[in-house]
Simulated scan of single mutants.
Amino acid sequence: MEIDEDKIDDCVLALLFLTLDRDHRAWKGFDWAVLQRLHDKGYIGDPVSKAKSVWLTEEGAARSRALFEAYFSKPDGKDRT
């Protein structure tokens, strides 16, 4: 099976939105290769540090939110729980 790394990167960026705070920091508990690719694409700061979180750029935070909404929101926007 051939893996589409861009799709993986989009999913991880979307999931970073779950722990994103108002300072644009999110927990970095994902695969290091994915985080490095997101850094190379300009969506996050350098993930190589002792910090348990990573900083999202303005573009990264906006894309993270948009991807989260695209992948995980209900079609009509209503909560059915």
Rank of each mutant, 00 (worst) to 15 (best):
P75S: 03
A70C: 02
L18G: 02
G77C: 02
F30A: 03
A62H: 10
E59S: 12
E58W: 09
W27M: 13
D10Q: 14
I8N: 01
A62Q: 15
T81G: 10
K78S: 10
D31E: 14
D10R: 11
S53I: 08
A14Q: 01
S49T: 14
V54H: 09
D46K: 08
D76L: 01
A14N: 02
D76R: 00
D76V: 00
R63Q: 13
D79W: 07
Y71E: 02
A70Y: 06
L13I: 04
A26N: 03
Y71G: 04
T81H: 07
T81L: 12
F30S: 02
S73I: 00
L16F: 03
K7H: 06
F72V: 04
L38Q: 07
K74V: 04
G60L: 07
G60W: 08
G45Y: 11
E58T: 12
E59L: 13
L67N: 04
I3M: 11
P47G: 06
S53L: 09
K52G: 15
D9R: 03
D40V: 11
R65W: 08
E2H: 12
W55L: 14
V54G: 09
K41W: 11
H24I: 06
D40C: 09
G45C: 09
L35Y: 04
V48T: 10
I3N: 04
K7P: 01
T57H: 10
Y71V: 03
D21C: 08
D31N: 15
T57M: 10
G45I: 07
L67Q: 10
I44N: 05
D21Q: 07
F17L: 01
G77L: 02
E69Q: 13
M1C: 07
W55G: 08
G29R: 05
G77W: 01
F30C: 00
T19H: 06
F68Y: 14
S53A: 14
S64A: 12
S73G: 03
G42L: 11
E59T: 14
G77A: 02
L13M: 03
V48H: 11
P75T: 00
F30K: 00
Y71A: 05
